[in-house]
Design a protein around this nucleic acid. Structure first.
Lengths: 129, 129
DNA sequence: TATTGTTATACTCTATAACTATA
DNA sequence: TATAGTTATAGAGTATAACAATA
């Protein structure tokens, strides 16, 4: 299982590198595809301290892939959102990861694959990561 | 599958932290449990440049968990080996990861678990990571 | 010449602590 | 006072390039 993790991790790392991103930066982009997210919420999602989020967001913002926008309700808070370019990179990276994983799982039969997916779903459980 | 990877990764990270190690340092120790390994070979195993291996080994050596020993055949080469303390930490960390993973997989039935393991083995393939 | 490993350098990632601004 | 976020600082991790020693 740990070896499977390394394999999947490498797929993700490689996909990130192809888009000239670090894995952490790619992870950040992936968390924004469903819409803007606040800094504190990002820290919770990525298991990072708030100062780490600041730095990570700073660097990705400098590359023009995301933007900060002040919250209208709470003037302390900021929302982080994908730029057009950021969305393109996020979607491309996601596609590449999916494609590579499908290639990885491609050898096993369809029924086995569905069985595997349901088993994994059982392990992961209902709570979102 | 990516979410499963995050889960397993977190198990490994937590086990490392409990022994006051970074995940990379724990990874290094795990690669040495079967015996001493050369620097170049370590880089290949961990997918690191040789200079990165030098730094990682330096830091873990400073903690007294590993030692460098010169090769007898090739006087350019060094072998990295676990110290007694390093072996203890490596084994403990490995046990903790196994225990947590078993707890994670504990909810699914025995037959399902064996099925999962064989499926994963099929994905990983024969070549060692 | 090629290989093994180190050093110098620069950047990313991360956490802790102190801080600012707003609630 | 409490919360959202930043800044300052320090250390780990990583790669590239230049280097020394040995093959």
């Amino acid at each position: 299982m740990v070896r499977l993790t390394h394999l999947v991790q490498r797929v993700f790392d490689d996909a990130s590198r192809h888009h000239d991103l670090t894995p952490q930066q790619a992870q950040l982009l992936c968390r924004l595809v469903d819409g803007p997210v606040g800094m504190t919420e990002l820290g919770r999602m990525l298991h990072l301290e708030k100062s780490s989020v600041t730095g990570l967001v700073d660097r990705v913002e400098l590359r023009g892939l995301i933007t900060r926008a002040r919250s209208t309700e709470d003037r302390r808070a900021w929302y982080v959102a994908l730029t057009e370019q950021g969305e393109r990179v996020a979607v491309d990276t996601h596609h590449e990861v999916i494609a590579q994983l499908e290639k990885l799982v491609g050898d096993i039969s369809t029924s086995d694959r569905e069985r595997l997916i349901s088993l994994i779903a059982g392990i992961i459980g209902p709570q979102p990561s």
